[in-house]
Amino acid sequence: MNDYSLNNDVLQELFGLASNQTLLLTLLIMVSINIGVEIFRFVSKWALSNKSKKDKRLILIEEKRIKILEQLFQSLDSLTLYDNSQDQELLAKLKDINKFMTRNKIYIPKEFQKHTNNILDYFKNILTDYRNRDYEKETKLFNKYCNAFNK
């Protein structure tokens, strides 16, 4: 008993508290503030972790999209190497590009689908009549694709 009263007197002198109830109230307030701060830290850490996961996912999707668009451009660019004696090879390449585009449609934005279809239509016209080949038009079509990619 004596030790308790001595401790109580010391605490009252140190903190200037009038009773044990005030000490208990102060202790409860400090503990609740500490718990609140810890809950806030936990929630903010969790939110940042989820944002980081989402950012990583978006980066992976964008990398895959860029890789597919580069492959598509290389395939389209290879079409310019065919001449009028290679009709069957050109037709097979057009079909391959169309299949590639269909398989990877989820990664190819609509703007690139439009440009790719324009290029494919141009080469289909060349396939029907080689005299329709216009190198300036080819350059314009590929420049549109490149400009869209470099936006």
Rank of each mutant, 00 (worst) to 15 (best):
D3G: 01
D83N: 09
T102A: 15
R103T: 09
V37C: 14
D96F: 05
S52H: 09
D55S: 13
R103F: 12
Y4G: 01
K64L: 12
Q88C: 05
I68T: 05
K64P: 01
N117E: 08
K144W: 03
N34T: 15
N7L: 06
H115V: 08
S75M: 13
Y135V: 08
T102Q: 14
Y122G: 00
S85C: 03
E138M: 01
L28W: 14
L6Y: 02
V43P: 11
L17Y: 07
K56N: 04
L69M: 04
R131W: 07
K95A: 10
A92S: 05
N117C: 07
I61R: 06
K51P: 05
L79W: 00
G16F: 02
K93H: 05
K114V: 06
I68Q: 03
Y130Q: 07
Q71N: 12
S49P: 06
K93W: 02
L28F: 14
I126R: 00
S52A: 07
N118I: 03
I33T: 11
L6R: 05
M1I: 01
M30F: 10
I97C: 00
I106Q: 13
N34S: 14
Q71K: 12
S19D: 08
L14M: 10
Q74G: 10
I35K: 11
L81M: 04
D83L: 03
S49Y: 13
D121T: 07
T116G: 00
L72A: 02
N84I: 14
T102I: 11
I29S: 10
N132K: 04
R57D: 13
V43G: 10
E111H: 05
N150K: 06
L90M: 03
D87K: 10
L120G: 02
S19H: 08
T22N: 12
M1C: 01
N50P: 03
K67M: 09
A148C: 03
F149V: 11
K99P: 07
T128A: 09
L141S: 00
D9H: 07
N147T: 09
M101H: 11
L90S: 00
M30N: 08
L28A: 15
D3W: 02
R41C: 15
K99F: 13
K45R: 14
T128R: 06
S19N: 09
L25F: 12
H115F: 09
E89R: 04
E138F: 01
K56R: 10
L23K: 04
T102S: 15
S49T: 10
F142G: 02
Q74S: 15
Y4W: 04
E111Q: 09
L24I: 15
I119C: 01
Q71F: 09
A47P: 09
S44R: 15
P109C: 05
E70A: 13
K105A: 15
L23G: 05
S49W: 14
Q71W: 07
T139K: 11
M101G: 12
L120M: 03
I35Y: 09
N118F: 06
A148I: 00
E136M: 08
L23I: 08
R41Y: 14
K53T: 07
S75N: 08
K95T: 08
N84E: 13
N50M: 05
I61V: 06
D121W: 07
L90A: 02
S49Q: 11
L48C: 12
